[in-house]
Amino acid sequence: MNVEAKNLTYQPSGTKTPILSGVSYTFSEGCMTALLGPNGSGKTTMLRHFLAQIKSPEGAVLIDGKDSLSYSPKERSRILAWVPQNSSGESAFTVEDVVLMARYPYKGTWDDDSDEDRRIAEEAMETVGVLQFKKRDFTSLSGGERQRALIARALTQTTPWIFLDEPTSNLDVKHQIRIMQVLREKVDAKKTSSIVVMHDFNLVEKYCDKAILLKEGHVVAKGETREVLTPKLLREVYEVDFEVFEKEGQRFFVPKTQD
């Protein structure tokens, strides 16, 4: 199943410059793709198109060649899962309740949570390390714990595609690695392809197959991670000089400070 962005252009009414202009990209299945770019370069706006939260006047998102807006929310949610940067959940649902909500697209109006649903949710909570919190209120979790619970929820949705908006932004180093590892394993097992908005080039270099570099709503570079992550391109996009060290075939990016 292919997911494709076709000529995405987005300009909120009353603004002078578009947030996205003519972005096209075909996401390949069985890949972990990083979506890179400075703040305000259009990464989240691009994700929002995929989730049918906004509509591009000319362009479209195609799922299997069909406009994603022609799918019902339920159909779409069996294909694409989303991990938001922050969740707006405020009710006193337990972590387990929240994770189980992601089984919604597979249920009829009167179906209760089945043993299968519980097993999938339990496994997802286990992989991201929130199983011990499952009876706690979702709202009582810390930022990082919440973020992991949201990842567990997206995994419980068992979709072929998963879109993550800065999934590691609130996590400690151990959990950053754990989450990237989990996503990588899902890709390698050919279960879920992922698209990840990230700012940590070292994690991207280690885990992602492909990368897209956005600047001011345009695609500056796209392709294999190794080709996109170069000091020259990074300088052009981020206006920061990077030094690159190489150890055992992996490159490490360290920003050069001015002084």
Binding site: S88, S91, M101
Partner: peptide, 24 residues
């Protein structure tokens, strides 16, 4: 009662509910 579960999901906001399949 029919909409009960949809309302549960809506407590996470329209966008999250929609991403999990609710016709918001």
């Amino acid at each position: 009662i029919v909409l009960g579960r949809d309302l549960d999901l809506l407590s996470f906001g329209d966008h999250e509910a929609q991403s999990m399949g609710v016709s918001v």
